Computed example of a mutant assay.
Amino acid sequence: EAIEAGFYNIDIDPSTLVDYSKESLLEQQKENYLNTARMTDFIRSLEPEGITVSIGAEIGHIGGKNSTPDEAEAFMEGYKNTLSEMGKDNLTGISKISVQTGTAHGGVPLPDGSIAEVKLDFNVLDSIGKLVKGKYGLSGTVQHGASTLPDELFDKFPENNCSEIHLATGFQNIMYDLAPEELKDKIYSFIKENFASEWKEGKTEQQFLYSTRKKGLGPFKKEWWYLDKDIKEKILNALEDKFQFLFSKLNVFDTREYTDKFIKLVKVPYKAGGTPKEVEDVRNLKLEEGAD
């Protein structure tokens, strides 16, 4: 369904299967690279003609210990060997690799609802980025959980072999910061009623709501969509300002020539019947904390 809907950038994340109790790095990463290879093959089998989905892997669980070049190399060697054993030597592999640098998905909310300062290790991005670019032909590393980092850090990502950065929580925060109190109260009541089981012991209400309020976007899509024009314009203007800032810091401006050179436009016809007739209740679906 995702590929049929036009999602051609997919991150595979079996990194929670990494077993640090194993002796060697290759053994630690085994379930990770095995499942990444299998999913790579599966995704390639679903691609529309002329489309190459950009696939990302992950070597360290976001929020866990920082990743190392040796772990990246162990993963890549295991991944390549697995594809070879599957008879898929010529299969287009992953294009990027997510690493843990000290961040957490969506940031770490403090008891008062503010976000903890993050100590991000750019050396992780740089050293692993150099390795995977030079030895395996990847685009570089991927940074998760960067939305809540200080503004002055963002120009460091292009300098340190980071080819992708995940920022969704920052955009979500702008929406909630500027949303009417009435709508926020309605959403927060819904979250407390339907996701109370995710309110972990020792967490304040502010921490709980910050970590789960992404689940208030879908069920209240209509309310968000039909906000008063002046409120919606404030949100859209704030988002545009943020995009302008990020595009500048991340060196996105003036790159059209490269996309024109390397990316071929492929028009894929709409495939009817992809949307299920019955609406699925996803309120009990367990998602990872935060959003990025």
Rank of each mutant, 00 (worst) to 15 (best):
L91S: 06
G137V: 04
N284P: 03
I231G: 03
E159L: 15
N32I: 09
S114P: 06
A291V: 15
A272C: 08
S114L: 01
E31A: 10
T82H: 12
T275R: 12
K264P: 02
G170A: 03
G202P: 09
V282L: 15
S163K: 01
E278Q: 12
V268M: 04
K96P: 05
H144V: 05
E159V: 04
T275W: 09
I235D: 01
P219Y: 00
G60D: 10
G60H: 10
V279G: 01
G106R: 02
I128W: 04
N90E: 14
N66K: 14
D151K: 10
D155V: 11
N237R: 05
T16F: 11
A2V: 10
S211T: 15
M175V: 00
T148W: 02
P69G: 06
E205N: 13
S15F: 13
F157P: 00
L153N: 07
Q143Y: 02
H144F: 04
M76P: 07
E280I: 15
A272S: 15
A168T: 02
G113T: 02
K186D: 05
S197P: 06
H61Y: 14
K186A: 01
P276S: 09
G87Q: 07
E49S: 14
V252H: 09
A272P: 11
A72L: 08
R213F: 12
F195D: 07
I51D: 00
G60T: 14
V118E: 08
D254T: 07
M76T: 08
F245G: 03
I10N: 11
S139C: 10
G134Q: 09
T52P: 04
R38N: 13
N173Y: 00
G50S: 07
N251L: 05
G87Y: 06
T103D: 00
E288K: 12
K242Q: 03
F154S: 05
Q29G: 09
E73A: 05
A57H: 00
K214R: 11
E152Q: 11
I10Y: 10
E23A: 14
S197C: 12
K130F: 10
D228N: 14
K65V: 14
N66L: 15
E198L: 15
T148A: 06
K119N: 14
N251D: 11
T204A: 03
L83P: 03
E198G: 02
Y270C: 06
G137D: 05
Y20N: 13
L167T: 02
F7C: 13
T204V: 00
Y270V: 14
V279A: 13
G129K: 03
A179P: 01
E152D: 15
H144G: 01
S163C: 15
D121W: 04
K156V: 04
E181T: 11
V118S: 03
S127D: 12
L46D: 06
K242G: 00
V124Y: 03
P14W: 03
F157Y: 13
G102W: 03
D177A: 06
N194H: 13
D121G: 09
V268N: 02
K22Y: 10
L125G: 05
G6F: 11
K156H: 08
S139E: 12
S84Y: 08
A196V: 10
R283Q: 14
K271R: 13
R38F: 15
M39R: 08
K192E: 15
K22P: 09
F190Y: 15
V118N: 04
A5V: 09
I12K: 06
G273H: 08
G60W: 08
